[in-house]
Design a protein around this nucleic acid. Structure first.
Lengths: 210, 210
DNA sequence: TGTACATCAGTGAACGCGCGTTCACTGATGTAC
DNA sequence: TGTACATCAGTGAACGCGCGTTCACTGATGTAC
């Protein structure tokens, strides 16, 4: 898919995209820290300097990779939301889609979170922040659809908890698999989905909409 | 606390411990990847080669740091479990202790998980694995105490979900703070605790103890 | 259609850097007699 | 108590490495006339 042959000096069709794809390849086979600009360039079959014509620096490349991930996840969410089924079914599918995305593209998922949470604690990439926010808003919407009695604040609060659950399940699932040979990943994913459902369904203490 | 003066060539009192403390200092001010052996040695006021008299290599040092974290967390858990209060109160305190440990010593916490989840997917350090397992078992016990109708398998399954929740809350809390200025960290932590409580309390579908 | 030229998207060599680790060493400490 | 000696826990210099990034360059492409 990557590293197509090319006469020296010839222009590349769409190197920007090819570099992101190469980064995904490198990432798929790596621990997060092993993702280096040079490894990505190597994988794309291009010199180490070439990426600088498309990205300001390594962080910008990783931000683009992260954005790519949020877009893929967002697309998946939109498919589910615009598909068939009632609100509870859609929430279940969204939860499952999130966890399985993170499990299947683990390093990519970690890059997404790392780009989202730089050292300072504030975002630097507006597009990335917007994509993350959109994704979160869709979760809030899915929960509100399941439980219309919730105020917006309540739906947001529950979405934060649901997000924590799904996010934490990525690492815990890996730990579970390592800690115990008979760890049941599918059962665990199911438990997570059920917990999110219960969380959403629970009536508000004050009846909501104050 | 670290880097005490010493005549050249003189023996250090307990450099092993001093190096771990220096690592914690470096870690407290760092992103996870910035933790280097050399920085730790520098911080301990010792040559870059000195740690090799106490740790096989960098990974072994980080494993020791991770173990230190699990032991601190375990001590906290035992204090709570042996203290006053009913089972629900103790579970609430354990959840709060976990989340606040992770928030207050964030990089340390990340080192713990990183050491626990090496690239391969299987643990390499037996002491570390044992400490992590003990910590998890205490959570299982706390949940079983809250809800005696649960079978062991059911308590384990719920503990995994509760662990995911607390673990995920670390990153999500940081994201929430970054995404929204009026993010209420204390309220969020409270929501997480309440969710864990509800998770534990929920009666088993089949009445448990089959 | 042909030619001149600006622009674009690559190359490859080089930079300085900090890293993990090794090594021969040295001085302080503990022990045997 | 003194002396000889093995061991221990440091030092500092050096190693090779791969990294991110810069730079002058070059050949292909697109455009004006």
């Amino acid at each position: 898919m990557v590293a197509m042959k090319r006469a020296v000096g010839q222009h590349h069709g769409n190197l920007r995209r090819a570099i992101i794809d190469a980064a995904l390849d490198v990432i798929a086979a790596s621990h997060v820290d092993d993702v280096t600009l040079r490894a990505v360039a190597r994988r794309a079959g291009v010199s180490a300097a070439a990426p600088y014509h498309h990205f300001a620096d390594k962080d910008a490349l990783l931000a683009a990779v992260a954005l790519d991930g949020f877009e893929a996840l967002g697309k998946r969410q939109l498919e589910i939301l615009s598909g068939n089924g009632d609100a509870e079914f859609k929430l279940a599918r969204m939860t499952a889609a999130y966890v399985s995305f993170a499990w299947q593209h683990e390093t990519h998922y970690r890059v997404m979170f790392r780009a989202l949470l730089p050292a300072g604690g504030t975002f630097k990439d507006a597009a990335l922040e917007a994509a993350a926010r959109d994704s979160f808003e869709r979760l809030v919407g899915a929960i509100a659809a399941v439980n219309p009695a919730l105020s917006t604040d309540q739906a947001v609060a529950r979405a934060l908890v649901a997000w924590s659950l799904a996010h934490g399940a990525v690492d815990v699932g890996r730990c579970g698999a390592a800690l115990s040979a008979e760890f049941d990943a599918a059962g665990f994913a199911n438990d997570v989905g059920a917990a999110v459902r219960r969380l959403a369904v629970e009536p508000p203490e004050d009846g909501g909409q104050h």
